[in-house]
């Protein structure tokens, strides 16, 4: 597990040199694995108030009004966790902004099937059915990649 603010700990007095050396070795191994592109990555992304576990080639359906149109390429920014087969990067609460790149394409926008919301209060002559069709957007996740090295300044951050 690689923590985000490890540099601040390196400067404190109560960390033994063994722990520092081990941490540096772990970070170097992880960086090498990132560069070699050995494994498939997944990320936990925060979108429209919900958290989704996302990897390359996934399909996602989000409910509710959402502006992006069909065919648009979108980058999902709020990444809470990114992981590969060998290590995970846990954000507190978000991972560093330029580190993980999650891109998606909007595939379809339509209305769901008719959902019936039934309300009744017994013995009070109150009964109604609300028929609703919610707008749904389908996304295809194109890419989840760790673009930067860990523990280094990010390259493109807006």
């Amino acid at each position: 597990m690689v923590l985000g603010g490890i540099l601040s700990r390196l400067f404190s007095q109560d960390v033994s040199p063994n722990v520092v050396k081990e941490t540096k070795e772990v970070i170097n191994t992880c960086n090498k694995l990132i560069e070699d592109r050995v494994s498939r990555n997944f990320a936990i992304v925060h979108l429209l108030g919900k958290q989704w576990r996302v990897t390359d080639g996934d399909l996602l359906v989000v409910e509710g009004h959402w502006p992006p149109n069909i065919g648009d390429q979108i980058r999902l920014d709020k990444v809470l966790l990114a992981a590969t087969k060998d290590f995970s990067l846990i954000g507190r609460p978000l991972v560093q902004p330029g580190l993980v790149n999650v891109t998606a394409t909007v595939i379809s926008k339509g209305l769901s099937h008719t959902k019936t919301h039934f309300k009744k209060k017994r013995r009070k002559q109150y009964m109604k059915i609300h028929f609703q069709r919610l707008p749904q957007t389908m996304l295809r996740i194109n890419n989840v990649e760790i673009t930067n090295r860990i523990n280094e300044a990010p390259k493109n951050v807006y």
């Binding site: 494994s39 498939r40 990555n41 997944f42 989704w52 576990r53 990897t55 080639g57 996934d58 399909l59 996602l60 359906v61 989000v62 409910e63 149109n69 069909i70 992981a83 590969t84 087969k85 995970s88 595939i107 379809s108 926008k109 339509g110 209305l111 769901s112 099937h113 008719t114 069709r133 749904q136 389908m138």
Partner: peptide, 28 residues
Amino acid sequence: ENMRTQQGDLSAVRLRKYQYTDHPSIQG
């Protein structure tokens, strides 16, 4: 506009889950 952006008749199918993935487990 709604018909243009759909990918078929979405009102005919009730979606059981809102996600689809080919790789449910990456770390094993």
